[in-house]
């Protein structure tokens, strides 16, 4: 057979208000990493460390984001040598990534995320909800990365976009 055409979860253009921009991001390769019992994962992970709850460990493009009990997602790196010490599951196609950056990112997300975002600074992440959707929220410089189930990407985009539009209209009021 010929080559199968790959599709992005959304395939939409960025929208924004002022310097606040909502965009779809390519998450690249994503691997769920769950260290096996008693495995010396620290040695293999170096220079990354297995993150404590709510923490992101990063080095260059590689990021290890805490996603649950004994589980983290590896972004921007190939999980080389990890298979012996941790259960690895490919998640590259399971999650859709949105980024919301710029002035007002916190205010817009406060419409949908029930967390105290004052406390979420770069280097931190949270498992929470976006409206009624499961969410991996990663604080980045100037904003957030919003990761939702691929199947829910359209609903997520719609909700954030709506919140952004209403926030923008308020600013003009």
């Amino acid at each position: 057979m010929g080559n199968l055409i790959a599709k992005r979860p959304l395939g939409v253009d960025p929208v924004g208000h002022g310097d606040l921009v909502l965009a779809e991001v390519d998450l690249g390769r994503v691997t769920s990493v769950a260290p096996f019992a008693g495995a010396d994962v620290a040695r293999v992970l170096k220079p990354l460390v297995f993150p404590a709850p709510g923490v992101v460990s990063s080095k260059g493009d590689a990021r290890l984001v805490w996603t649950g009990r004994g589980q983290a997602f590896l972004f921007g790196a190939v999980p080389e040598g990890l298979g012996a010490v941790a259960a690895l599951s490919d998640q590259s196609d399971g999650w859709a990534g949105l980024s919301l950056t710029g002035t007002g990112a916190v205010d817009v997300l406060a419409r949908l995320v029930p967390l105290d975002l004052r406390a979420l600074v770069p280097g931190q992440c949270a498992r929470t909800t976006l409206g009624h959707m499961p969410l991996i929220l990663i604080a980045v410089f100037g904003g957030f990365e919003v990761l939702v189930f691929r199947s829910m990407a359209r609903s997520a985009w719609h909700e954030v976009e709506q919140a952004l539009r209403m926030w923008g209209a308020r600013a003009q009021c």
Binding site: A34, Q91, G94
Partner: peptide, 19 residues
């Protein structure tokens, strides 16, 4: 897993969305 066999070496994650 958490209530009955927390010490077992078993790890699982949903991959519903990935496939």
């Amino acid at each position: 897993q958490q209530a009955y066999c927390g010490d077992w070496d078993v790890r699982f994650v949903s991959v519903t969305e990935n496939w």
